[in-house]
């Protein structure tokens, strides 16, 4: 095995880094960045929207994924079959299509429905935000539900039987052993799923949710620039991904995940 991890200060790396710095400097001097101060406040709030959307849909999606996975792993047929169908449909169709189906399809239904139009919920249902949250939540639940199913199925039977032998009721076994062990087993996949979820959030800009992607789109329309805003956007997402990965690495270091 050759050493995979090598030092950062090898000569060729220094040259590559110099080239990278040169490219960045070239971009900074030769491209137009004068729009940046005008939009910096909006960009920060856009990043905030993106992160809030990510947090909200990941947590909600995970909470829905737990019963979805449990139903598939241990539920009776009339629960397992719909749960499996839900996961298959979510994983088998593009998220953009689901999003547009909800926004345009459900949105047009509600517009035809006088009871909904006169209710307190109408101002919310007319905006794009709930549809974006719903689509992203279902997407996360669909993908993570499959993982949770495997996690539930993978808990060794002996541990459950040991719990029963100690006189625990089935519910106590579930609460004390099965659920915590399953979540524990599913944790390592959570980092990857969350990064995927972050990369799915810009889709909501296509239904007029104002996240960081939508702000950049507005910059592009206002300034007629093509590359500068998009490069900045790519940089922002790279930073967010990096922070997420580091945060999960820190988190995983505190939860011992060995031997499962």
């Amino acid at each position: 095995m050759s050493p995979e991890q090598r030092r950062w200060n090898e000569p060729h790396r220094l040259v590559l880094m110099a080239i990278a710095v040169a490219i960045v400097l070239f971009a900074a001097y030769n491209m137009r960045w004068d729009w940046l101060p005008r939009y910096s406040g909006k960009l920060v709030s856009g990043v905030g929207t993106t992160l809030w959307l990510l947090l909200l849909t990941s947590v909600l999606g995970f909470l829905i994924a737990l019963p979805l996975g449990l139903a598939q792993a241990a539920g009776p047929v009339w629960l397992a079959a719909p749960a499996r169908a839900f996961c298959t449909v979510i994983r088998g169709t593009p998220l953009l299509l689901q999003l547009w189906l909800l926004y345009y399809g459900l949105g047009s239904l509600f517009a035809y429905w006088p009871e909904v139009r006169q209710s307190w919920a109408w101002p919310y249902l007319r905006s794009a935000w709930p549809y974006g949250v719903l689509a992203l939540t279902m997407s996360f639940a669909g993908y993570e539900g499959e993982v949770i199913r495997g996690a539930f199925a993978g808990v060794p039977r002996g541990e459950l039987e040991a719990g029963r032998a100690y006189g625990m009721s089935r519910f106590t076994v579930f609460r004390r052993i099965w659920l915590p062990r399953a979540i524990h087993r599913a944790l390592p996949t959570l980092a990857g799923e969350t990064v995927l979820q972050l990369k799915a959030t810009p889709l909501v800009a296509t239904i007029t949710v104002v996240d960081v992607y939508a702000i950049i789109s507005r910059v592009r329309q206002d300034t007629y620039l093509t590359y500068e805003p998009l490069l900045l956007l790519a940089l922002i997402y790279m930073l967010l991904t990096g922070v997420l990965v580091l945060a999960f690495r820190w988190l995983e270091a505190r939860v011992p995940v060995k031997g499962s």
């Binding site: 990064v195 959030t201 810009p202 590359y227 998009l230 790519a234 991904t241 990096g242």
Partner: peptide, 11 residues
């Protein structure tokens, strides 16, 4: 792998 596909596609 760190940038959303949507952004990559535009770029």
């Amino acid at each position: 792998r760190a940038v959303p596909e949507l952004v990559l596609i535009l770029l």
